[in-house]
Design a protein around this nucleic acid. Structure first.
Lengths: 346, 346
DNA sequence: TCATACTCCTAAATCGTTATAGGAAACGAG
DNA sequence: CTCGTTTCCTATAACGATTTAGGAGTATGA
C-alpha cells in the first residue's frame, strides 16, 4: 500500500447549521424594527436605555455578528487592513514575524489582515493606489520606506489611513514603527572601538532606504567620537548579498580592516564567509557586529556581536497604529521607536 | 534639527476622482437595464451576441470591476482565500516564502489573501470552523497536517474547499502540496552511507506531524537497504530546538555517531553547535544532511550536505488548488509532490 | 387570421446594513 | 381643550450585485 492510498473518508456528518442571526432576527425576537435594532447596537442617544439593553442582550444570546458584506456595501468600510510588502530583502524571516505579529494583534479586533506584494521592477506606489482606489482596505501598512517616500506623500495627500515600518522625512505626521538604526550604528562602532578596533567597514543596506541613511549617520557619528576610521560599503541587495559583499570585502580586507558592522543576519553570514576565506578569525584579527531579528548569529559563530531587533513589537504597534489612523484620523498618529541598548558587554 | 523634525508636508493635491463605475453606469451608457448588463457580463445564453459584445466593450472602456461587497452580499462568495498558519515552527522563513508565493499567484485572480494564525495551545480546528461558519472565506489553506488531521476531516464533511501544505491519510481525496520527506529521508541516509557513515542519528520533527512520519519511514527504509544503523531522535519543537537537540546530541554523540540527518535549517544549526562543542568536525568525523528552504546552510558550514525544498512551488500550487476547489468542487483535487533528487554528489 | 412559440430583454425582489425623514404617543403650557 | 414639544421609535431608500418571473415583439404554423 503506497503513501497515496485513499483510506476511508471521514464520516460525512453534514449537520445543518442554524442560520446566522442578522438584524432582522433580532428585530423579530424583540418586536422592534430593524432600523431600531441597528441604532440600538450603535448606541443612538434617542433610544430608551432599556430598549438598548434589551437589544444588546438578545444580540448576545443569538451570537449576532454584523455581516461584513452588508456593512461594507452600506458604509464603504471594509474592515480590512492591507499589508503591502516588497519581495526583496526577505531573508531571515523578519517578514514572517511581522505578519504573525500583525495578525495576532488584529485578531482581537474586527479587522482582517490582507497580504499582497509588489514585485521587483513594479512601482510600489501603484499597488497602494490600487488598494485605495478600489476601496479594498481601510488602511495600508508597508515597509522599506524611503526618506521622501512617494507612497507616504500620496497617502497623506489622500488622507488615507496608513502606517509604515520605517520612518520618512514626514515622520512627525504619520504613524510608524521603526528600529533606531542610528543608535544601532553608533553602538556597533562603540563596541568595536572598545574592543580596540580602529579600521571599521560598514555593510550598509541600499542607501535610498531611510533606515540605511540612519544607520550610516550613526556609524559616522560614532566614528568621529571614537576616532576610528569608518568606511561605508553599500550593499545593493540582500538577495545578491553574498556575491556583492564578498567582492567588497575582498577589497576592504586587503587594507587591514579589523571591524565590521552588518545591518542584517544575511550580510553578516556572507561577510563571515568572506573574512574566513581570507584567513581572518572572528574575535581575533577582526570583530563583527550585526543586527538580527532572530537569535541565529550566535549559533552561527559564537564570536559575532549581535544586537537584537524586535520585529514582533513593530508588528503589534503597526496594527494598533493603523486602527487608530482609521478610527481617529485627527488624533496624534501612533509612533514607536525601538532603541537598542549598549550593554557594554563588549 | 533632529531625526524627527517634521519637514513640509507633501502638497495636498486632493483631486476628486471619477466615481467608480457600477452596473448602473454601464446600464446608463448602453441604454440597457441593470439586470441585462449583469447577465451580459455573465454571458447568459439568451442575450444577443452583439448585445453582450456591446456591454463588454463599454465595461472595458469604463474599467468596470465588480464591487466585492455587492457580490459578496448577494452571492455569499467572499473572493477571499484564507491562510491559517501555526505560529510554531516558523524559523528560517518558510512562512514568508509561502505567503509571498501564494500572494503572487493570487494577484492575477480576483481572490484576496487573508492571513490568520492560531496560537500555541489553541485548537487548530476552531479557527478554521470560525472562518467557515462566519463565511469569511471561500477556501482555506493550512499547514502542519497530521495523518488523521481533524481539520481535514471536518472540512471534507462540510464540503468546504481547502488545500493543505502536507498530506494526510485522506490525501487521495483533497488538494495538497507536499515535499516528499520520505524520499528526503532515504536520500539523506544513502548520501551518508556513500560517505562511509554507519551510525546515523535523525533529528525528526514532532512525530504527530504527517511529514515527520514520512521522513522517518524514509530513513528507516534506507537504513535497512544500506545496513547503516539509524536512530531517530524526535525534536519536540523548533523553537526550543537548540536546547533539546543539544541535549539529545550530547547523549547520542557519546556513542560514536558519524552521520546526522536534520529536517530543518534550524535543527541543523543547533546540531552543528552541539557537535562542534564535542570537538567533532563536519566532513571529518561526522557528516550532516539537512533540508532547507533557503540556501543558507552552505554559508553556515560549507561541509553541510543540503537538500533544497522549494516552498514557493508549494505556495503556487496551493493557491491554484484552492481556486480549483472553489470553482470545480467535483473535479479531481489538485495535488503536487516535490520529489528531491539524489544527485550522487556525496 | 389567430393562436402559439420563440427571442431578447427588463422589473422587482433580495442579500444585511445604516441614514434620513418623519410619525405616534405622551406631556406641558396656555 | 388645543397646540406645541419632547420622547422614542419606524418606514423607506440606498449601497451593488444576481435571480426569478414575466413581458413585448417578432416569427411560425394551421
Amino acid at each position: 500500500m503506497s503513501d497515496m492510498a485513499a483510506e476511508d473518508p471521514p464520516p460525512p456528518q453534514v449537520e445543518e447549521r442554524p442560520e446566522k442571526p442578522t438584524l432582522k432576527t433580532i428585530a423579530r425576537r424583540t418586536g422592534l424594527a430593524v432600523a431600531t435594532v441597528s441604532r440600538a447596537l450603535a448606541d443612538a442617544p434617542d433610544l430608551r436605555t432599556d430598549t438598548k439593553a434589551l437589544v444588546r442582550r438578545v444580540a448576545d444570546e443569538l451570537g449576532y455578528v454584523p455581516n461584513r458584506a452588508g456593512l461594507r456595501l452600506r458604509t464603504g468600510r471594509t474592515q480590512v487592513i492591507s499589508l503591502v510588502m516588497s519581495t526583496e530583502h526577505d531573508m531571515m524571516n523578519n517578514t514572517a514575524r511581522l505578519i504573525s505579529s500583525l495578525a495576532g494583534t488584529l485578531r482581537e479586533t474586527p479587522f482582517h489582515l490582507n497580504v499582497s506584494y509588489f514585485f521587483p521592477g513594479e512601482d510600489a506606489l501603484r499597488s497602494i493606489q490600487h488598494i485605495v482606489e478600489m476601496g479594498l482596505a481601510d488602511a495600508v501598512i508597508f515597509n522599506q520606506t524611503q526618506p521622501a517616500d512617494p507612497r507616504v506623500a500620496w497617502l497623506m495627500a489622500q488622507r488615507f489611513p496608513f502606517a509604515t515600518h520605517g520612518r520618512t522625512h514626514w515622520a512627525g505626521q504619520h504613524a510608524w514603527a521603526d528600529f533606531d538604526n542610528r543608535a544601532f550604528g553608533a553602538i556597533a562602532v562603540h563596541k568595536l572601538a572598545r574592543a580596540g578596533r580602529r579600521r571599521i567597514v560598514v555593510i550598509a543596506p541600499p542607501l535610498n532606504q531611510n533606515y540605511a541613511q540612519d544607520m550610516v549617520a550613526g556609524v559616522m557619528q560614532a566614528g568621529a567620537e571614537t576616532g576610528a576610521e569608518v568606511r561605508v560599503l553599500p550593499d545593493v541587495s540582500s538577495d545578491a548579498a553574498s556575491a556583492v559583499v564578498q567582492a567588497g570585502m575582498a577589497l576592504a580586507l586587503a587594507e587591514g580592516v579589523d571591524g565590521l558592522v552588518c545591518a542584517s543576519t544575511n550580510s553578516a553570514m556572507a561577510s563571515v564567509a568572506a573574512l574566513e576565506a581570507h584567513g581572518l578569525r572572528l574575535g581575533r584579527e577582526i570583530d563583527l557586529v550585526a543586527k538580527e531579528a532572530i537569535p541565529f548569529l550566535t549559533l552561527f559563530r559564537r564570536e559575532i556581536i549581535a544586537i537584537r531587533e524586535d520585529v514582533a513589537r513593530a508588528g503589534s504597534v503597526l496594527a494598533r497604529a493603523a486602527i487608530r489612523a482609521i478610527r481617529e484620523p485627527e488624533a496624534l498618529p501612533l509612533q514607536d521607536l525601538e532603541v537598542p541598548q549598549d550593554d557594554q558587554d563588549h
